[in-house]
């Protein structure tokens, strides 16, 4: 365990805790866009900057809380002038990049920023290159999409910008995207994502298409669960459960009446 000081409050955390976790545990808020608890810290959005002074040092420095380890004797300011200026600038830049994104607009206006200082980009989508989609895809074991290009040309793309062969159409990328920028369309038992069409499996009971076949197969294999677990959609599983419980109830009643 180690002690540190966050906004004047003494906080005790386990060794190895990331500063962001320590700050949030202490009840302070730090905005993030690229951070996800299930993934390695990425340090790309730079919104989680805080100002720290290490023990025995005179100077403070601005660091990202997501990947900075909590250290004994550390003094942390989450809203200092330097922090607020840096965070605002990041949002100013993001607001110019994605002027149409409600998530970015809301975050920016929460810092009093209603218009960007820079000319807004025209004809650009709402990708902020936080990398969550790419990293989740990798975490799930598919690595179907990646970052391509560099500098201002950086973008999320499938290899060779073709429909990604390793994609199973799980849709996690679309769901974790903080700006909702990845299109996913389910229609007529087909799912379209990343310019690929995936056949969807229909629930054996109600016929609703509820998962792509490739995803289903990969998950049966990865989880080690029997395939029968995946046969019904969640609604029909629930109905089955209800019926089972009801049957048991009737049986119980009958047994009770026999006694």
């Amino acid at each position: 365990m180690l002690n540190l000081d966050i906004n004047g409050r003494r906080v005790t955390v386990r060794k190895g805790t990331a500063l962001l976790a320590a700050i949030r545990e202490a009840g302070f808020e730090v905005p993030t866009l690229c951070h996800h608890e299930a993934l390695e810290p990425y340090g790309a959005c730079r919104l989680c900057v805080v100002e720290v002074r290490e023990e025995g040092r005179d100077k403070t420095r601005v660091v990202t809380a997501c990947n900075y380890p909590a250290k004994a004797g550390l003094q942390v300011e989450t809203e200092s002038e330097a922090v607020v200026e840096t965070r605002r600038e990041v949002l100013d830049l993001l607001l110019a990049r994605c002027p149409g994104s409600p998530v970015i607009r809301e975050l920016a206006s929460s810092m009093g920023l209603h218009r960007s200082s820079y000319p807004p980009d025209q004809n650009r989508d709402n990708c902020i290159l936080c990398g969550l989609c790419v990293r989740v895809c990798e975490k799930l074991g598919f690595t179907a999409i990646t970052m391509a290009g560099r500098g201002a040309e950086r973008e999320v793309a499938a290899p060779l910008k073709e429909p990604p062969p390793d994609c199973v159409g799980c849709g996690s990328c679309a769901r974790v995207c903080p700006t909702g920028n990845i299109p996913l369309v389910d229609r007529d038992a087909m799912r379209r994502i990343w310019d690929r069409d995936f056949e969807m499996v229909r629930c054996t009971s109600c016929g609703r298409a509820y998962i792509t076949r490739e995803y289903l197969e990969s998950r049966v294999e990865a989880s080690g669960l029997p395939a029968s677990h995946f046969e019904l959609c969640d609604e029909c599983s629930r109905s089955r459960t209800a019926q089972t419980m009801y049957r048991h109830m009737v049986l119980d009643d009958k047994e009770a009446s026999h006694e």
């Binding site: 993934l39 799930l140 974790v176 998962i211 998950r219 669960l225 029909c236 089955r240």
Partner: peptide, 15 residues
């Protein structure tokens, strides 16, 4: 921590 992969939704036999 949830990455929205929804696999648990499908895997739970009780819905």
């Amino acid at each position: 921590r949830c990455v929205r992969c929804n696999v648990c939704v499908v895997a739970c036999p009780f819905g």
